[in-house]
């Protein structure tokens, strides 16, 4: 791994931890069911996936899972890994999918899925991955909780998708600042 890649990975990892911590500082919203979180650090995973590559996104998820494992214990770490890896793998697959483009002049043209689409699927899959993890931990089916996770996935996935869009110039700037200084 080159110094540039190492530095970039470290920067993105630090950003995702900082966002997770920021989210932790926010008070729990009373109208939200327990366990429902914004998932702000997913912004960084998505940035890595779309603008660097799937391998970088998987690496960020692994690092994040490892960090949770060290700081919050085995159970929280496993759940973070289950959610993070499942989500990133599904998003990486969806990023390759192409659908027919109705607005195109020629009928045969295809378009990639939108950022919003992939962001929502990522959030839902993060929730489902954690739910499967919980099932293995205490072997009880949680079907009654699936609607909550679906709705919150749609909501939180939309929010993080919009935030990726808004924060893109800032992350780009930080990433380029690191990369450029290495070139000189």
């Amino acid at each position: 791994m080159s110094t540039r890649k190492l530095t970039r990975s470290a920067l993105l990892f630090a950003l995702s931890i900082a966002l997770a911590y920021l989210e932790h500082l926010l008070p729990p919203l009373p109208f939200l069911p327990p366990g429902v979180k914004l998932g702000l650090s997913n912004i960084i995973t998505m940035y890595a996936l779309f603008f660097i590559g799937p391998a970088q996104a998987v690496l960020i998820s692994l690092l994040k899972g490892g960090f949770v494992l060290i700081t919050r214990g085995a159970i929280a770490g496993c759940l973070s890994l289950m959610g993070g890896l499942f989500s990133v793998l599904v998003m990486a697959l969806l990023a390759k999918v192409r659908i027919p483009d109705k607005s195109a002049a020629e009928a045969k043209e295809s378009a990639p899925l939108s950022y919003l689409f992939i962001s929502i699927c990522g959030a839902v899959c993060h929730n489902l991955g954690q739910l499967i993890g919980v099932y293995f931990l205490i072997s009880h089916s949680f079907l009654a909780y699936v609607p909550v996770l679906l709705v919150s996935g749609v909501l939180m996935g939309s929010i993080t998708g919009v935030m990726l869009r808004l924060l893109l110039p800032a992350i780009d700037w930080a990433d380029r600042a690191v990369s450029d200084s290495k070139k000189q």
């Binding site: 043209e109 939108s114 699927c121 679906l150």
Partner: peptide, 19 residues
């Protein structure tokens, strides 16, 4: 080659199906 859009029509179908 199309660039990836932020939002497009198929997103509404996804949201409707999930809800």
């Amino acid at each position: 080659m199309h660039t990836r859009r932020f939002i497009q029509g198929s997103d509404l179908i996804l949201i409707a199906v999930l809800l």
